[in-house]
């Protein structure tokens, strides 16, 4: 309950941004932080709460993005409908990948590699079929109106990403308070023990990957409408997969607020490096790699773990600190 209040408070404060920020540049920054938090939270559902480390979340992101773009450009379907279709398609792709991997009990690095392979297959496919624009990419024609999911000002986009991100965070809050979440974390921590207690590990993991895919897909839809251009490398390339996992790892795996902290932290770092070194191509991946190594070595509980250490929650007399899923 306390977490829900905190969540409401945090999003209310973020919701002040369009009223107090007049600079488009700064508002764009807030939008990109929310967008990264959404990507990260999507990954966190499966990776942080479910313990299934995916290296291929671009598969869902790209599917969401291409769905809204292709429906619009090729079939003239309204992007608001495309948003729904994009979320659903991403979820179906997630269901397919989940079925193909969990059915055969793939875990750990095998699961990670197979998800990476799926994303790469989709990248190559989108690079060769004509309706995605193949290697040239796909350009969504500029036609600014709210009915067309293209806003003249950044404020409209802000509210879309705010709602999407809030929905993802509310879902994860629910996970932390539900039977589904308890079973998911049990599967993460010890699958055999969970099954011995009657937990349907396969179903639980399917639920997690589909929710995860849904929110990644929504991030993809948002990206397509915000930037109006996609190509196979943007949509299905490894950069999105890496960003998806880096955000919650930096912020705190399996915690509600971790992805938000991670998104803020990573954006601060990348803005700082841009100030210091300028816009070198590929520099962000280098920085991400360094950050990942530092986090894994020195702060395995991420920024949320750091926050918890600085402000320990008032624990009952005999209790010890427990962070699993509760930061």
């Amino acid at each position: 309950m306390k977490q829900l209040v905190l969540l409401g408070l945090v999003f209310a404060v973020i919701g002040l941004a369009p009223f107090v920020i007049s600079s488009e540049f700064t508002l764009n920054l807030v939008i990109m932080v929310l967008y990264a938090a959404l990507l990260g939270q999507a990954w966190n559902i499966l990776g942080g709460y479910g313990g299934q480390f995916s290296f291929g979340h671009a598969a869902y992101f790209g599917t969401g993005a291409y769905t809204v773009a292709v429906l619009q450009v090729q079939l003239g379907i309204n992007p608001w409908l495309g948003l729904v279709a994009g979320g659903v398609m991403a979820m179906l792709v997630a269901a397919f990948i989940g079925f193909a991997t969990f059915r055969y009990g793939l875990r750990g690095s095998y699961f990670a590699l197979v998800t990476l392979a799926f994303a790469e297959v989709l990248r190559i496919l989108s690079n060769s079929v004509p309706f995605t624009g193949a290697g040239v990419g796909i350009l969504i024609p500029l036609d600014q109106s709210a009915a067309n999911f293209q806003f003249a000002s950044k404020q409209g986009f802000f509210w879309v990403i705010w709602v999407m991100t809030l929905a993802a965070f509310a879902t994860v809050w629910w996970i932390g308070k539900s039977r589904f979440g308890a079973q998911l974390m049990a599967v993460r921590d010890n699958e055999d023990a969970a099954r011995a207690l009657g937990v349907e590990a396969f179903k639980v993991k399917m639920g997690a990957i589909m929710l995860s895919g849904l929110f990644s897909g929504l991030a993809g839809v948002f990206y397509a409408q915000y930037f109006l251009y996609l190509d196979p490398y943007i949509a299905y390339g490894p950069a999105i997969s890496i960003e998806s996992l880096l955000v919650p790892i930096v912020g705190g795996l399996g915690t509600l607020f971790g992805p938000l902290l991670g998104a803020i932290g990573l954006h601060l770092i990348s803005e700082a490096t841009r100030e210091l070194i300028g816009d070198l191509p590929g520099i962000s991946l280098v920085i991400y790699g360094i950050v990942l190594v530092i986090m894994v070595l020195f702060m395995p509980r991420g920024l949320a773990g750091l926050v918890r250490r600085l402000w320990p929650k008032p624990a009952p007399a005999k209790a010890q600190a427990t962070e699993g899923g509760h930061a």
Binding site: R179, A182, Q183, M185, A186, D189, N190, D192, A193, A194, A196, L197, G198, V199, A319, T322, E323, G324, G325
Partner: peptide, 25 residues
């Protein structure tokens, strides 16, 4: 149900949370 000779706790979760997984059945 069975128990395990080599104990298999859900490490990182509290005793209460561990037992609740069983209760959720």
């Amino acid at each position: 149900v069975r128990t395990f000779q080599i104990v298999q706790p859900f490490a990182g979760q509290t005793v209460r949370e561990n037992i609740a997984v069983g209760a959720h059945l």
